[in-house]
Each structure stands twice: as C-alpha cells, then as structure tokens.
Write a protein that binds this DNA or RNA. Structure first.
Length: 224
DNA sequence: CCAGACGTTGTT
DNA sequence: GTCTGG
DNA sequence: CCAGACGTTGTT
DNA sequence: GTCTGG
C-alpha cells in the first residue's frame, strides 16, 4: 500500500532535498491522495530534476486519462513483466520525497489510520514515471513502488512503499543502470526504526487538508 | 509483416 | 455493488 | 487509499 | 511502448 502521504517543509525534508541535489524546498502538503499533483525527483543528462506529476500513472499509449485501473502504486514484483511498468522501470525511475505515509490498519472497530515516519529523517519513496501525450499535451504521471511489509509492520498492513537509502539514490535514478527484481530495497529490512502513530479519522477524507489530519489520537509506537 | 489490443492495486 | 473524485 | 454518488422510462 | 493474432 501507499495511498496517502504527507510532505512537510521541515529540516528533515530540506536535508533530503539536499541529498537529492535539488535546490528547492517543497511546500507543505498534507493528506496527499492519488490523482493529485506531487513533487517527484528524477534524473536526466543534466542531473537531478524536480517536477510535479499526476500521482496515478497513465500508460504510454493511453489516449485519455482515467482511473479504471489502480495505477497509483506499482508492485515491485510486477515491474519487469507489466506492459505498463516495464519501460518506466528500465528507464524512468524516480523518487517521491515524503515526510510520512499513511496506512489503515484493520481493527475490530473498523479501520484505524496510522501515520508512519522515520524519527530523524524524511523518506525517499521509490517511484516510476511515464510521459504520455494527452490531447497533444505531454503529461507526466507516476506510481509509488510497493513491496511486502517488513516483519515489524506486518501487524499494521501487508504492503508498504519501497524506501530508498541515500546510498541507493544515484543507482535508482540512473536511467543507464538496469535494476533487477532482487534489488535490495525491494526486500531489505528496516535500516532505521519507523514510528507508527494512530491518527484522527479526519485523514480519511482526502479533501481535508487541515493540520487536523495528522493529529495523534494515541501514543506512537516504535517499530523495530 | 501489419493491425489492434493492451493497463492495476489492495483487500476480501 | 461499482464507479468517480480527491 | 477513502468518501460519496450512483438509477430509468415515457412523455411533455 | 509492447505483445498477440492472423
């Protein structure tokens, strides 16, 4: 999973942007949902670049934008064989900077939203992007790559976004490098603990962009 | 060879 | 139940 | 991802 | 763009 996340303009995010060699800060965006426009770091011959892309990948051949298929995530296990994902996986890999992401944990009472974050750093989510000509206009769109949850997170949810370490940034963004399905980040354990905080159900409504959406409703738990 | 169709995730 | 919008 | 809307015919 | 069918 990874169907909702946050960007917060704080020192952790600024530090991540610096590591990504992007000379810009990202404005705070809370409760970002699929189909919204999100900041994405990708690489071309001139170096790393920042673009805003539609968070819902549009296939290269599509003539229109639609949401019939769930393309805001891309399973890492399927990147190579999928007709939609194979070219982006080979040549169009990207990083989505995130302060935290949201998981809904199934509990007896229903679903509890959990905010997942690192304690002392922002997150680099692995992504792929595509460029599609729609009505004569080039549209950039992207999907966040997912993987099986690490054991520490399984109780919360069975899937999670692929988290990249700074040492992997260059390799992942380099279009000339071939990445295989056994890429470390698809299967690695946690390099640092994650913190999971139960938050208000106000986050459920993607139209709610107020600070209330990251309000804790119980004590955080450290996953390690 | 060309024509024409094709795309997905997470959850139950 | 299924599709659309954010 | 979740929330919220969604339907039809025959007739004027 | 890439695969399948003829």
């Amino acid at each position: 999973m990874c169907g909702r996340y946050n960007v917060i303009d704080d020192p952790f995010m600024q530090g991540l942007m610096q590591m990504l060699e992007i000379d810009a800060s990202l404005p705070t965006q809370l409760n970002i949902a699929p189909t919204e426009s999100i900041p994405v770091v990708w690489r071309d011959h001139s170096g790393n670049r920042l673009s805003y892309m539609r968070w819902w990948l549009v296939p290269a051949w599509a003539k229109t934008v639609d949401t019939r298929y769930a393309m805001f995530n891309a399973r890492s296990e399927n990147l190579k064989k999928s007709r939609v994902f194979s070219k982006p996986f080979r040549k169009q890999r990207a990083i989505v900077p995130a302060s935290s992401f949201i998981e809904w944990q199934q509990v007896d009472a229903g679903k509890q939203a959990m905010l997942i974050e690192r304690e002392q750093a922002a997150l680099a989510l692995a992504a792929i992007y595509e460029v599609t000509v729609i009505d004569g206009q080039a549209l950039q769109s992207c999907a966040i790559v997912t993987r099986a949850a690490v054991p520490e997170m399984e109780a919360l949810h069975s899937r999670m976004p692929v988290l990249l370490q700074p040492s992997q940034f260059k390799l992942w963004l380099d279009a000339d490098t071939e990445i295989e399905l056994d890429f470390q980040a698809f299967t690695a354990g946690l390099s640092e603990p994650l913190r999971a905080t139960p938050i208000s159900s106000q986050v459920n409504d993607s139209r709610n962009k107020s600070a209330d959406v990251i309000q804790a409703v119980a004590e955080p738990e450290t996953l390690h």
